[in-house]
Design a protein around this nucleic acid. Structure first.
Lengths: 336, 336
DNA sequence: TTGAAAGCGCTAACAG
DNA sequence: CTGTTAGCGCTTTCAA
């Protein structure tokens, strides 16, 4: 492979000039630039990015940590990240963590070995090992589309409280009074936020909150089915179930069918995320649309603010949700 | 950040010795090794991978080109790739191409700028631009889980002919005679292979192949719905539809419901891929299970054979499918 | 087993 | 505007 020296020789200029002609063309004369371009073509020269990055102490890559890449919601966010990164000439390293702290830390370690310039974490944990972050400056690590307990980490997040409140209000508007919830892991910041939204709506509607109507899931379809099964055992059956993601809603719907009940005839179901699949369930799912691609774009912006040490880094960004009403919600049959 | 020189000073050895103690420990004396380890700890030294890679002319990363990362099947394959890559100390660069040739080439170009050591392409095209591959040696580019027309590119693929034949046979076994197909883009190698499987089964069963019963889709749910709509207009309605992926099957099922027909009562439906969602559709989907994670692992193996210039590179690998029978298939109602 | 020294390909002062 | 020069941090001969 031709290197910069070969080009400089052929063009009859110094290597520095070649470098400049390529990186900062406006700083070399028209004539030299032409000679260089010509020589580049002739030699088939491709700059060695490894050398370039090494020299400039930047990898021009960011890493996205994702608990489970086969979750379609995360893939859409990642898609947004990649698009935005590409615009700035960055590439995206994938870090599938399977939710394991150890794997997360291992991957986050790449930051300190100069293999990546920044990290976008899609789950709520701060990924750096304690020994990895004793520096004074803000580490280039941000969170995207999750809630985080400590706010040392910049975030791009949804108005989760507002969204779940809007969803609960939608059900109240249809006449539901006994509303159950299939939540994420209890205690996780995201669950806490969404639960708060539901409770706020109930409070405003003067309906007491019944903890027995909250079943815990882990965002998988199987867990949604299990949780629904538990809820159906309740002496007084709920007339609606708010699920904290679409997968659990899909699992719940299957379980409800198995129990011989119908959606929304007997029970209304709602999801969260608006996966492409949500429009194709039977019945199509009422859900909250998260701007997944925008999440990715914004996350990249915020991260670059830190990486490039900009004066005014945005710390916390909240993106808007949208309630998407489909056929999985309807007024309760035995109204009142 | 402490560098190798700082460590060597503190340990009272040369930088070469530090490098050796870290990379090839068995070649330095027990005593020196200890001194070095100690100094590494004290200084908090982390080797600069950018420098290391630059020096050794390897990026230790591979790139996966994927037409659409939000397709759950691809994400599972990618997950397998990442796991296998990590085992060998490689990281995975993501290349979402949105199916665009231009983007593919742009990304594949990273190979020639030393930003990646190899490419796993998840769609059927050879991704290198012509001007990028005039070398003598095999480019480190392989295909995974797609069929490819020219066999210059090594592949890891499914027995697609066998799988679609098995699926068609399953339907014959149930008594179906009029079987329609919702295929991928016509002419694409994958479509050709799967269609061949269906036709082989039909031929063996002495049932003539009717081109009017093949509707084209693009693997999206929406396209599956459209294709089903077209097929339902057919004067003689099919009793079963073989779809070339699960998403199109899901779209088709919705369309069939909309037409007031039932699955499998009026029409049996089959998919391909066995997405997690396939077990949760209404009714649960009969489909072909592809070993998606194994795809990734094998692909990495084959790619490494090329990257590391092994003597006996495997060129073409075929992985086994599995027929998963669920409730979307049943004997035709008006049998015969 | 270790050290000295060269140099990977490039960028970035600093002079001119 | 351009050339000279000095490295970036590491690995890898080559000698000792």
């Amino acid at each position: 492979m031709a290197n910069i020296r070969a080009v400089s020789k052929l063009a009859g200029v110094s290597v520095a000039t070649v470098s400049r002609a390529l990186r900062t063309p406006d700083v070399v004369s028209e004539e030299t630039r032409k000679k260089v371009i010509e020589a580049v073509k002739e030699t088939g020269y491709k700059p060695n990015m490894m050398a370039r990055n090494f020299r400039s102490k930047k990898s021009y890559s960011i890493m996205v940590l994702v608990p489970d890449i086969s979750n379609p919601f995360f893939s859409m966010v990642i898609s947004g990240i990649q698009q935005a990164a590409k615009k700035s000439g960055y590439s995206v390293l994938l870090g599938n963590t399977m939710g394991e702290v150890e794997t997360e830390r291992e991957l986050a370690h790449l930051l300190h070995t100069n293999q990546t310039d920044g990290i976008i974490q899609l789950s709520s944990r701060f990924p750096l090992a304690p020994e990895d972050c004793e520096e004074g400056r803000t580490p280039p690590v941000i969170n995207c589309c999750e809630c985080v307990d400590d706010d040392s980490m910049p975030t791009v997040t949804l108005d989760n409280v507002g969204a779940s409140r809007a969803m609960t209000d939608h059900l109240f508007g249809l006449g539901h009074k006994r509303i159950a919830v299939i939540s994420g892991p209890k205690g996780s910041p995201l669950t806490v936020a969404r639960l708060a939204g539901c409770q706020a709506a109930m409070k405003a509607a003067n309906i007491p909150f019944d903890p027995a109507l909250v079943a815990e899931g882990d965002y998988s379809m199987a867990s949604g089915a299990r949780a629904a099964e538990a809820l159906l055992c309740n002496s007084l059956r709920p007339t609606a179930i708010v699920c904290f993601n679409d997968e659990m809603a899909i699992g719940a719907m299957q379980q409800i069918r198995k129990a011989g009940l119908s959606v929304p005839g007997d029970i209304s179901i709602t999801g969260f995320d608006n996966l492409t699949f949500a429009a194709y369930t039977e019945p199509p799912l009422t859900t909250i649309c998260q701007p997944s691609e925008a999440f990715g774009e914004k996350a990249v912006e915020v991260l670059f603010d830190i990486i490039e040490d900009r004066a005014m880094p945005v710390r916390h960004l909240t993106l808007p949700y949208e309630l998407v009403v489909r056929e999985s919600t309807a007024p309760p049959s035995s109204a009142g």
